[in-house]
């Protein structure tokens, strides 16, 4: 194992300055009117997410969960090496479509986010935004050991180690990298979890919103977006 410099202390003092386009400013409109703009407040909605109840009747909820399990729409967003293992699922050999799994290009229409490998801090920011723009109920699958404990990037200064500190993860698929078969098996397992009604990640996220946000902000130093991207 490599030796570590025990005396190294990371710089916790320096604040990252807010980007110029995000700073409050005053603008003079063409007709002479002077307008105050605070982009972070004016451009975005500040509301926090809320917990969405299950449907009142257990039968209806079960029926809905069955539909959700059989129509998994994956957001086409690949983050690490593992993204390359998602593509074969569309091919004749694995053909995930027969299980009702499809890929959607926009987060609005997707309800499954697969974090397919290591996540650098820069990508984490995008992943959080994508996750928050998805509609409830939504599920997160962590693919590969990088999302579990850092994998082979365990000592990297720029990749996170535990995905569940930042997003509510429903299921992990271990391996470096997991083969498409493992991915399919994982998705089948996820279906079972959904049908049991245990995949309530979005509600968990809303309940522990402050904890998640504190974790996210502790690694993303240039936080220049609203707390919840609607």
């Amino acid at each position: 194992m490599k030796d570590m410099d025990k005396s190294f202390r990371k710089d916790t003092e320096t604040e990252f300055p807010l980007r110029e386009e995000m700073r409050p400013r005053t603008v003079t409109a063409p007709d002479g009117q002077v307008i105050e703009i605070d982009p972070l407040r004016d451009y975005f909605c500040e509301e926090a997410p809320k917990v969405h109840r299950k449907s009142y009747s257990a039968i209806v909820e079960g029926f809905y969960n069955w539909a959700r399990a059989n129509s998994l729409w994956i957001l086409g967003f690949g983050t690490g090496c593992g993204a390359i293992e998602m593509r074969p699922l569309m091919t004749p050999r694995f053909d995930a479509y027969r299980y009702g799994i499809q890929w959607r290009p926009t987060p609005r229409q997707a309800n499954l986010l697969i974090i397919s490998g290591y996540l650098s801090v820069k990508t984490l920011k995008r992943a959080i935004r994508a996750y928050e723009q998805m509609q409830q109920p939504k599920f997160v699958v962590g693919l590969g050991s990088c999302t579990i404990n850092g994998g082979m990037y365990w000592d990297s200064y720029n990749t996170i180690k535990r995905l569940d500190d930042y997003l509510p993860v429903d299921l992990y698929i271990a391996g470096c990298m997991p083969r498409p078969e493992a991915l399919l098996a994982g998705l089948m397992e996820l279906k079972k979890i959904i049908r049991r009604g245990e995949a309530e990640g979005a509600n968990k996220y809303a309940e522990n919103f402050d904890w998640y946000k504190a974790n996210q902000k502790s690694v993303i130093k240039d936080w220049d977006m609203p707390d919840y991207s609607w």
Partner: peptide, 10 residues
């Protein structure tokens, strides 16, 4: 199923 799923989103 897709239709139902979309209607069932919360």
């Amino acid at each position: 199923i897709d239709l139902l799923k979309n209607i069932a989103l919360r």
